[in-house]
Simulated scan of single mutants.
Amino acid sequence: MKCKISLGLVLAAGVATPVLAEWTFVAAPTANAFIQSNDSTLELQCGRIRFAPAGYEDSEDIETKQGLSIRFMKDGTTEVGAFQVGQDNANVQIVDNFPVEISFNDAEDYGFVLDQLAANASVNLSMIDQDVTYGIFDLTGSSAAIKSLKSACGGAIQQAARTEAPEGVVYCGGGAVKRQIEYVILDTPDGEWDALLTVNGEVTRAMTAYSFFGNTEAPRGFVVALLGEDRSETLVFQDGGKDWLEYGDYQYDKCN
Rank of each mutant, 00 (worst) to 15 (best):
K2V: 14
I5A: 11
A13E: 15
A13R: 12
A13F: 12
A13K: 14
T17P: 10
L20F: 14
L20I: 15
A21I: 15
W23E: 12
V26N: 13
P29S: 15
A31H: 02
A31D: 08
A33K: 09
A33I: 08
F34S: 08
I35N: 06
I35W: 03
S37Q: 09
S37P: 07
L42Y: 08
E43A: 08
F51V: 01
A54L: 08
E57F: 10
E57C: 00
T64E: 09
T64H: 14
K65H: 05
Q66W: 02
G67W: 02
I70L: 04
M73T: 04
D75F: 01
T77P: 05
E79T: 11
V80H: 04
V80C: 01
G81N: 05
G81R: 00
V85R: 00
D88L: 08
N89M: 03
V92D: 01
D96W: 02
N97R: 15
V100A: 01
V100F: 05
S103W: 00
A107S: 14
D109K: 07
D115N: 11
L117T: 05
S122H: 11
N124D: 13
I128C: 03
D129W: 09
D129K: 10
D131K: 07
F137W: 13
T140W: 08
S142F: 14
S142M: 05
A156E: 10
Q159R: 02
A160K: 08
T163V: 06
A165I: 14
P166M: 05
E167M: 06
C172Y: 00
C172A: 01
C172D: 05
G173R: 06
G174K: 00
A176F: 03
A176Y: 01
Q180K: 10
Q180F: 03
E182N: 10
I185M: 03
D187M: 09
D194S: 04
D194H: 00
G201P: 09
V203Y: 00
R205W: 04
Y210P: 04
Y210V: 15
S211G: 11
F212C: 01
G214A: 14
P219R: 11
V223N: 09
V224R: 06
G228F: 04
G228R: 02
S232A: 12
E233L: 10
V236Q: 00
G241A: 10
G241D: 11
G241E: 06
G241K: 09
Y247G: 00
G248P: 09
D249W: 07
D253Y: 12
K254S: 15
N256S: 11
